[in-house]
Amino acid sequence: MPENHHDSERTGPAPPAEQPPAAVGTPGNPLRLTDPRMMRALAHPARIAIWQFLGLEGPATATECAEVAGLSPSACSYHLRTLAQYGFVEEDLASAADGRQRPWRVRVVAFSMPEGADTTAAMRDAARLLAESVHASVEELREGYHDRELEYPGRWREALGATHDVVHATPEELTTLRGRLIEVVGEYRRLSRDERPPAARRVYVRTDLIPWFEPDAGE
């Protein structure tokens, strides 16, 4: 006969409800790019700027995106259509203030690029091109800050800036460290405006784990 377990016989807290998996293309589940054409499509500097703007401030029209990317609205529309072709953005007519507007919204806000032995030469070349384009946009942002650093309030200058350090860890420990860093940064990501304190401002965060040893010493 089956056993009956009454509520009074249970001990300890109830197990936590299982959380649904994060949607593909979100920070909790980045989209893994494997199509070289898709990576090359995003690698264009103007498209990176448009994609970032929509992810942080969208939905927005082509005219609004054009101001950020330094393009004409017609040129920006071309880049938006290209991004939409590869699934990075899509039209969001539901957010239009009237029937004449054609807002766009981002579909993918986080991605990862292929690594390892299972990648093809075309994938590696496209991934490197995209990585270099993203790096160039970050360097432009960094140099712009240094050019105008003294214009920023002192309390911001004290909080900003790079931190350099070194760790001695195993691959497994580095994986754990990376996960912890992502978790901590995620607490302050606040992609929704409603989550941001009034004094919050956007700050780019970059964490780069670079091997400081020769390849043959990595076993």
Rank of each mutant, 00 (worst) to 15 (best):
P2V: 08
S8N: 09
S8W: 08
S8D: 15
E9D: 09
E9I: 01
R10E: 12
P13K: 07
P13W: 01
A14S: 14
P20V: 00
P20D: 08
P20M: 02
A23N: 03
G25W: 00
R32Q: 09
R32G: 13
L33H: 09
M38H: 10
R40L: 07
R40C: 01
L42W: 00
A43F: 00
H44L: 09
H44F: 03
P45W: 00
A46I: 05
R47H: 03
L54T: 12
L56T: 15
G58A: 06
P59G: 07
P59E: 06
A60Y: 00
T61P: 03
A62R: 00
T63Y: 00
E64D: 14
E64T: 13
E64N: 05
E67H: 05
L71I: 04
P73D: 05
P73M: 02
A75N: 13
Y78G: 10
L83P: 00
A84S: 12
A84T: 04
Q85V: 12
Y86M: 04
G87N: 02
E90I: 04
E91V: 12
E91W: 02
D92E: 11
L93P: 07
L93M: 13
L93A: 15
A94M: 05
S95D: 12
D98E: 12
D98W: 04
G99F: 08
G99P: 01
P103A: 07
R105M: 12
R105W: 01
V106K: 01
V106C: 12
R107M: 09
V108Y: 00
V108C: 07
A110Q: 03
F111A: 13
F111V: 04
S112H: 08
P114A: 05
D118M: 06
D118P: 00
T119V: 09
T119P: 03
T120Y: 03
R124M: 11
R124E: 13
D125P: 01
D125G: 06
E132S: 08
V134S: 02
A136G: 13
V138E: 10
E139A: 06
E140H: 11
E140N: 14
E143T: 14
Y145W: 11
H146Y: 12
L150S: 11
L150F: 05
G154V: 11
W156S: 12
E158M: 04
A159F: 09
A159P: 03
T163R: 09
H164L: 09
H168N: 10
P171M: 04
T176G: 11
T176S: 10
L177Q: 12
I182C: 11
V185E: 15
E187L: 10
R190I: 01
L191Q: 14
S192C: 11
S192N: 15
S192F: 08
R193S: 15
D194N: 08
E195N: 14
P197C: 04
R201Q: 15
R201V: 15
V205M: 12
R206S: 06
L209S: 03
P211L: 06
P211T: 10
E214R: 15
E214D: 14
